[in-house]
Design a protein around this nucleic acid. Structure first.
Lengths: 232, 232
DNA sequence: AGAATAGTGTCTGTCAGACACTATAGA
DNA sequence: TCTATAGTGTCTGACAGACACTATTCT
């Protein structure tokens, strides 16, 4: 193991990477968890994650993506660092540091994939309290949830919970499920126009009444931020 | 070194903690750097940082605070995780992960302290490009600067660059120096009143004209966020 | 035609920007 | 009194909330 001259005086903490993957399942904000096959916390539900492979991971982002792919088959369109959690108490094996990521994915994009993987399952945010998660993963999920909620107040983040093509009503639903509050259709439309992130698809879909316009992300656009929040 | 069964297959990356400490020196946003005494990058200016001591650091926040204290004598009133930076190229000794923090402190609070420490010095943000910093520290500082600027648009973060007691004009100056744009006195006063973060000190100080009211942080208040930004 | 959903028009409220105004200190 | 800085009053503009209105589809 590589240890520099200056660090050899100290034990290094064990470093891992975890990911909180969000999606919307049956109108409920949900996270994807895996059933731990090994001690500690064997048999408990936990965030998908693991250790950096210094030979193949160009950086920790790659580790997060690789672990998500290996353990759940999912390749999310949005992935971002959340924060690091550390301490001597969070892992019974000793002092540890985990770097947590959060990611969003459209449920329909993974519902096929996920069948190929054993013991990975979506859990609604509300159902987690009864689940007794491994390590401090409950706490990490709470932090990730807060971040996603905050960011959803001033950006179009929730689009990443949708399919490639989506309607305004679907985006409105995703935002409302995430922030836990209803918003005005009109306000959302104003933001869609102002953001210039989306393009109109030459197709409409049935929805019980008038046909709904489909939208999709423009090629290569970044998530843009607005100067004001949806009110809380 | 503690290595779990599951991780023993892999080399662990070298994990360190660094801090970007901001203050305002002569009306310039500045960061505190230390002169590296050891290889690699010996003699280069670098962020104060180091390795976790698992025996005394309760978490990485403690590591960041401890390293700041040891290397520069500073105990900042505001410290927050920025993000982690990783990769095989950022440190010639091999694959490394650093967890970067950013912090703010009033210059007058440290200008005495700093004399006790060798080779720690304030550098204005603008002067950094000519400095050839160690590792990817220039990049980390840019990210930290962006975060501080963003956060200063919707919170009172810049107060942590001031002395315990301060005037509205001083706070206005701090905000303007950080975000790089002038703001309206009136807008700031509205935010001060709305935030309820501050209390009036029973004292005023001279400033060339009418005496200026002194303010200070209320006991135990948190940094609050506004729903709207100062415009960019 | 009636119900349901999509999409528009437009008024209100809030808050940042602008800027003129008053207040109070020192020279 | 003059100048400089502190602090207020108030209008404007941008944008979110509210909600009624029109448009289009299906039954």
């Amino acid at each position: 193991m590589q240890v520099s001259q200056t660090s050899s005086l100290f034990k290094q903490p064990l470093f891992s990477v975890d990911a909180v993957l969000f999606s919307i399942v049956d109108n409920q904000l949900s996270v994807l968890l895996v059933d731990r096959a090994i001690v500690p916390y064997k048999g408990c539900w936990a965030l998908p994650g693991g250790y950096v492979n210094v030979d193949i991971d160009s950086c920790t982002d790659s580790t997060a993506r690789r672990k998500l792919k290996e353990k759940t088959g999912v390749e999310p369109p949005y992935l971002e660092q959340l924060q690091s959690f550390s301490g001597v108490d969070r892992d019974p094996r000793g002092y540890s540091v985990t770097l947590a990521y959060y990611a969003l994915v459209g449920y329909q994009l993974v519902s096929s994939n996920i069948d190929t993987v054993e013991d990975a399952q979506w859990w609604s945010i509300d159902s987690l309290v009864e689940l007794n998660l491994a390590f401090d993963h409950q706490f990490i999920i709470e932090k990730a949830l807060y971040r996603v909620q905050q960011k959803s107040l001033y950006s179009m983040l929730p689009v990443y919970c949708l399919a490639k093509q989506f309607t305004i009503a679907q985006l409105k639903m995703a935002i409302e499920v995430i922030i836990g509050k209803s918003i005005q259709r009109k306000s959302l439309i104003r933001r869609i126009e102002a953001s210039d992130m989306f393009e109109i698809v030459d197709e409409k879909i049935a929805s019980g009444g008038r046909l709904a316009q489909l939208y999709q992300l423009r090629n290569g656009v970044d998530l843009i931020s607005f100067e004001r929040n949806f009110s809380r």
